[in-house]
C-alpha cells in the first residue's frame, strides 16, 4: 500500500459516501444519473466475486463490502425511496445501457488475461467502470448545469482516477512483475473521460458561471 493508492481509495470512498449521504439528507437525487449508478453497482458486483474465495486483507474485504453496500443503497434510494425517487428525472437520463454493456461483454470475452468465468467477469468490470460515467456526463450535458452535489461527486471520482494512475506508476517502479495492461489501459481511458469533464468544470469555475458543456 502506497500513499497514492490509499489516497485514491479514500477519494473513491468519499465520492460514493458523499453521494449516498447527500441523497439521504436532502432527499433528492436531482442531476444524478440512475443509469451510471446502476452500472457502478454492476461493476462492484462483477469485480468482487472473489470476496468470499480470496482473502487479501481485512482492509480489502471491508472496502469491498462498503462499495457493494453503498452502490446498491444509492440505486435503492433512486428507484425505491418514496420521496427521493420523485426527484429522479427519467426523461433526461436517456443513455441506452446496451451501447455500454454489450461492447464491454464482447471485449471482456476476447481480451482477457485468462478465459475463466471469474477472470472474464473481472475484466468486464474494468471495461464497464471505464465508461460507466457516460450516462452521467450526457445528463450533465442535457441539463446544462452542475450543482454542488454532482460537481463534488464527479470531482472526487476524477481525483480517485488520477491517484490510481500515480499508484500504478509507483508500483511499476517499486514492485517486480507488476504489469497489468488491461486495468491500466481501461483506467487511462476512464481518466481521459474525466479529464474532458474537468476541462469544462475548470473553465466554468474560472469564468465563475454555471457549467456549460458543449452540445
Amino acid at each position: 500500500m502506497n500513499i497514492f493508492r490509499l489516497a485514491g481509495d479514500m477519494t473513491h470512498l468519499a465520492s460514493v459516501l458523499v453521494l449516498l449521504l447527500k441523497i439521504h439528507t436532502i432527499k433528492s437525487c436531482a442531476g444524478i444519473s440512475l443509469k451510471t449508478q446502476e452500472l457502478y453497482a454492476i461493476v462492484f458486483a462483477t469485480r468482487y466475486l472473489d470476496i468470499f474465495t480470496d482473502f487479501i486483507s481485512l482492509y480489502n474485504t471491508i472496502m469491498k463490502l462498503i462499495f457493494l453496500g453503498s452502490s446498491f443503497s444509492i440505486v435503492w434510494y433512486i428507484r425505491q425511496h418514496k420521496i427521493v425517487r420523485r426527484s429522479y428525472d427519467k426523461d433526461q437520463d436517456t443513455f441506452r445501457y446496451v451501447f455500454i454493456v454489450l461492447p464491454c461483454i464482447f471485449l471482456a470475452l476476447i481480451i482477457n488475461e485468462k478465459f475463466t468465468f471469474k477472470e472474464v467477469m473481472w475484466t468486464f468490470s474494468l471495461y464497464l467502470e471505464a465508461v460507466a460515467i457516460l450516462p452521467q456526463l450526457v445528463l450533465l450535458q442535457r441539463t446544462r448545469n452542475i450543482d454542488n452535489l454532482t460537481g463534488q461527486y464527479v470531482f472526487l471520482l476524477g481525483a480517485y482516477r488520477a491517484l490510481y494512475i500515480l499508484n500504478w506508476i509507483y508500483r511499476y517502479f517499486t514492485e517486480p512483475h507488476y504489469i497489468h495492461w488491461i486495468p491500466w489501459i481501461a483506467g487511462i481511458v476512464q481518466t481521459l473521460l474525466y479529464g474532458d469533464f474537468f476541462y469544462y468544470y475548470f473553465h466554468s469555475w474560472k469564468n465563475n458561471k454555471k457549467l456549460q458543456l458543449p452540445a
Binding site: 472473489d50 487479501i56 486483507s57 480489502n60 472496502m63 499508484n167 497489468h180
Partner: peptide, 10 residues
C-alpha cells in the same frame, strides 16, 4: 507467475 499476483486493488 501471473497467477501469483493477487488482485489487491479495488
Amino acid at each position: 507467475e501471473k497467477d501469483n499476483v493477487p488482485k489487491d486493488e479495488l
